[in-house]
Amino acid sequence: MDFSERLEALALKVRNQASAIETEEATKNAFVMPFIATILGYDVFDPLEVVPEFTADVGIKRGEKVDYAIVRDGEVQLLIECKAALGALKVENASQLFRYFGTTNARLAVLTNGVVWQFYTDLDAPNKMDSKPFLVLDLLDIDETLIPEIQKISKESFDLDSIINAAEELKYVGALRREIAAQFREPSDEWTRFFTTRVYEGMFTAKVREQFSVLVRKASKQFLTEQVNDRLKTALGAGVTVPAEPDSAREITSEQAAEDDLDRNTEIETTLEELEGYQIVKAIACSEVKPHRIVHRDQKSYFAILIDDNNRKPVARLHFNTKQKYLGLLDETKTETRHPIDSLDEIYAHSDAIREAVKRYL
């Protein structure tokens, strides 16, 4: 697997197991050590590369430990402090990292609960760890633009100068994106005033603020929806090219060609929720097959998820066109069973059945 595939595989494990992880030690074993080994590429069983319970006495603080130190060429390059998977990460959790940062050669530090990974450096003052991370990786919602930056920290591609040079922009762009997202979810008074005064000529009174806070929130959601729909229409209009199967693997018949032609309908409207459901099924199926082989094909009555864009190889069907949503799963005889779901997260409860469906075509 390449780097992004390994990251997606670990993310799938986190989605499936995070709710069952209750202690810090369990978090280390289930998520942190696999991240160090499979994503960063260090041997967790080699004390010359990964030092668990790393100790460096700091002033009057004796015997305090950082959970892991990553060593390259005999020098500590990265410090990692862990918390339990269900616990929220706060800067107060990083007290050991702050103290150790200035006593080692490390320019990078990580605070993690195995799900969210916060990366720190010393942009504000030399040899003093910043109070805010320059990069935040959430394995439950991976920002693909950060994958190349994470890869720079891996053993194979480690490039400290490039990491530090990019850190300032990453820090502020990331912080701005999170703040903008927060304002779209729940506009502050300042945000509401900013837009209201540009469209409303009267005084910005308490009553006007109350009225426009609702309108600004509504307008923000509509704007986002329009942007997403525009991108979906562009993507669907451009189409997706999938490598064709060799003739030996897929026999083309007149019946097959007719079915394929009937499946294509220009009046079909693909929704964002269907694409989100597709991404969940794809993430589950990626444990068995390469991601590019899992494709979707929307139809009037259901949204199909297929292997190799072949409707004889269905993985699942999403029936999202009615008030009650259903996940359709097919057995060996192609008999479909519809499972009612109230939220997309419930798809994960059928992970084993989805994987079994994929295995039947391999």
Results as ranks from 00 to 15, higher is better:
A353H: 03
N16P: 01
E53G: 10
T253A: 01
N93T: 01
G328K: 02
K323N: 13
T205K: 11
Q211L: 12
K282W: 04
V173K: 15
E156T: 13
P246D: 13
C286W: 03
L306V: 12
D141V: 04
V240E: 14
F195E: 05
L40N: 02
R312W: 14
Y348P: 02
S154A: 01
L79A: 09
R185G: 06
K13F: 02
E49M: 07
E149I: 08
R6S: 11
R231I: 09
R297V: 02
F184Y: 11
A69V: 02
F303P: 03
K152W: 01
A125P: 00
T23A: 04
N321G: 04
I280H: 07
Y68T: 05
A175E: 10
R107Y: 07
I354E: 00
V208M: 07
E251N: 08
N16S: 11
N127W: 03
V51F: 10
R312A: 11
L78T: 10
E24T: 12
V216F: 03
R72Y: 03
R15H: 15
K233G: 02
T205S: 15
V50I: 10
E8R: 14
E179T: 13
G41R: 06
V315I: 15
V58S: 04
F134W: 01
R231S: 14
S343I: 02
P243S: 11
E190G: 04
P34G: 09
L215M: 14
K290P: 03
L330I: 05
A238N: 15
N321K: 14
V240S: 14
A249G: 02
V14W: 01
F134R: 00
P314N: 04
A166M: 08
A11L: 04
V281P: 11
D67V: 03
A18L: 06
S343H: 13
T23F: 00
V228D: 06
I142M: 08
A11R: 06
F320L: 09
D309M: 06
E336L: 06
L176A: 13
G239C: 03
D308S: 08
I280S: 11
F158V: 10
L176P: 01
F158C: 03
I307R: 03
A56K: 09
I307D: 04
R62C: 01
N105I: 05
K90E: 04
F223Q: 08
F320V: 13
V116I: 15
E53K: 06
L272T: 11
T27M: 09
Q256E: 11
V116E: 01
T121N: 09
N321T: 12
Q222R: 15
A257E: 13
I80M: 07
A94N: 08
D124P: 02
E25H: 05
T234Y: 07
T225R: 15
Q77P: 00
R178V: 06
A26W: 02
K290T: 13
K323R: 08
L318V: 03
S188R: 06
P34Y: 11
P340D: 00
A20K: 05
A18F: 13
Y278D: 08
E259S: 12
